[in-house]
């Protein structure tokens, strides 16, 4: 248990994850980028002692990339398992990160796995894998920046129980920063206060707001001895905006917090 990745719970999500796993229910996690979705899954996999197969989904991801394909080796064809098939065989957790990025027809291969059948038919080899009880399917996506033509098919969505993540309340986020970087409490408090000021600009001046991950970056720089103002500019301001005037305003917020 020493190697458990750090995770600060902010609700009953750990309990819910365990229940879902025990009852063989697939799970969908949604939330803004950098709020701890991936970390949560890694934490749970370690806690439950399961192997974790992560797939970062992208535009060109095909069903074959998930399930597996024939490769040509020494003039012979050889079947090679994809990450999904491997997770099913091993009885581990298969985690599809940013699942909406994948094309919709790709995610349809998840359907028989994600309902009570829990099977993975592999057309190309004629195999039909039955998932062992310890197998769990977890997908995540960020509802914030959905491409207009993307989004999950309702038939896919309806196969999951869903957990909504958001940035944690101030005290918990401070605890996360302290837990991740062992930064002092005062600096953590100020970082979180900056982040919350930036979050007020969501959908208005900023397309994306400061994530917990970026705060951890800033805290890491500060812990390393970097000047707080410089650390925040590098980790927060310049990461969040390219617009010079917006950047000036964001820097003023940082100065207002850490002093100049």
């Amino acid at each position: 248990m020493e190697n458990l990745p750090f995770y600060q719970p902010h609700g009953s999500e750990i309990e819910l994850f365990e229940r879902a796993w025990r009852n063989r229910l697939p799970l969908l996690i949604k939330g803004p980028t950098g709020c701890g979705k991936t970390r949560f899954v890694a934490h749970m996999a370690a806690k439950l002692g399961l192997p974790l197969h992560t797939v970062a989904c992208h535009d060109d991801l095909t069903a074959a990339d998930l399930v597996g394909r024939h490769l040509i080796v020494d003039g012979q064809t050889e079947w090679s398992d994809g990450p999904l098939t491997r997770a099913v065989r091993e009885g581990g957790i298969c985690y599809l990160d940013e699942v909406v990025e994948a094309r919709k027809d790709t995610t349809v291969v998840l359907h028989p796995l994600a309902d009570d059948r829990r099977i993975l038919p592999i057309d190309r080899t004629g195999e039909q894998l039955a998932a062992p009880p310890s197998f769990m399917l977890v997908v995540s996506y960020n509802p914030g920046y959905q491409n207009f033509l993307k989004g999950m098919k309702p038939s896919t969505r309806q196969r999951f129980i869903s957990l909504a993540f958001d940035f944690p309340p101030a005290e918990q986020e401070e605890a996360i920063l302290i837990g991740e970087t062992s930064i002092d409490a005062m600096s953590a408090k100020r970082l979180v206060s900056i982040a919350n000021a930036f979050r007020a600009l969501r959908d208005h001046d900023l397309e994306e707001v400061a994530s917990t991950r970026l705060l951890v970056y800033a805290a890491t720089l500060m812990k390393d001895g970097c000047d707080p103002t410089i650390a925040c500019r590098a980790a927060l301001v310049e990461t969040l905006t390219d617009d010079p005037e917006t950047a000036v305003a964001l820097r003023e917020v940082i100065d207002a917090t850490f002093g100049r």
């Binding site: 000021a197 007020a200 001046d205 005037e245 917006t246 305003a249 003023e252 917020v253």
Partner: peptide, 15 residues
């Protein structure tokens, strides 16, 4: 003005 407007909203002003 632009800086001020964003600053205002970041500090919790009515958007």
């Amino acid at each position: 003005s632009k800086t001020a407007a964003i600053y205002f909203r970041a500090l919790g002003g009515d958007a």
